[in-house]
């Protein structure tokens, strides 16, 4: 199992850099992952990360449709906040596994 050190904490990650143990995540860690991904985190970003983590913790599948309906952020803004591959980037920064859904 691979590890990475963020904000002085060593965390377990898979070969793509996604957290194996979402419990190890903190906001400080998120800021450092975001830097690696080229994203500057704002309060709005943390709201989205919080939403994603809550969804994951309650065992719900993540989808782009769910994000749009979340009331937290609309899809267009979501794409702007995590440019490139938004779902992959956001889940990585949120310290949760990469979503396995096709939609």
């Amino acid at each position: 199992m691979a590890t990475k050190t963020y904000a002085g904490v060593t965390v377990d990650v898979n070969e793509e850099g996604y957290f194996n143990n979402p419990q190890q995540w903190t906001k400080e860690i998120a800021k450092e992952i975001a830097k690696e991904e080229g994203v500057e985190l704002t309060d709005k970003h943390f709201e989205v990360l919080e939403y994603l983590r809550n969804k994951f913790n309650s065992g719900d599948a993540l989808s782009i449709r769910g994000i749009n309906k979340s009331g937290v952020v609309d899809v267009k803004t979501f794409y702007q906040m995590f440019p490139g591959a938004p779902m992959k980037k956001a889940t990585k920064i949120a310290g949760i596994p990469k979503p396995a859904s096709c939609v």
Binding site: A61, N68, D74, V75, Y79
Partner: peptide
């Protein structure tokens, strides 16, 4: 049930994504 949206909504998501 699989969270696949109706065509109109799917198109909105696609366009919102650029």
């Amino acid at each position: 049930k699989l969270d696949i949206p109706p065509v109109s909504e799917f198109i909105e998501l696609f366009v919102a994504g650029g």
